[in-house]
Amino acid sequence: MDYLKAFLIGGAICAVVQILLDKTKLLPGRVMVILVCLGSLLGAIGIYEPFSKWAGAGATVPLTGFGNALFKGIKEALTEEGFIGLFKGGFTASAVGISAALIFSYIASLIFNPKMKE
């Protein structure tokens, strides 16, 4: 059941974004920014967290989930540590994703060479 939910919800989010891409000519970079900001906003108003509890990976794998995690991190850090948490929680929550992307990409740059498109 959780697989079906992940497929349907994750797929639906991607489908909506595809409409955005095709209809507005927004560049992919902008779309990624919009998704993260949107996720963090939906997290802040308390919608995304219950949604992702229900939808599982369908909600956490898309970048909106990344945005939600950022806010969640800040909220937790605020409750635990007060003001300084504002500057700490975001990176703490996103640490695994960003570090993994940077470190693995660096290693990839050592292994792989640029390739021509066919």
């Binding site: 991607c14 955005l20 990624m32 998704l35 970048l63």
Partner: peptide, 12 residues
């Protein structure tokens, strides 16, 4: 398309 852009894999 967006199916590869939106997930965290697109970010990576």
């Amino acid at each position: 398309g967006a199916g590869t852009l939106v997930p965290i894999t697109g970010f990576a």
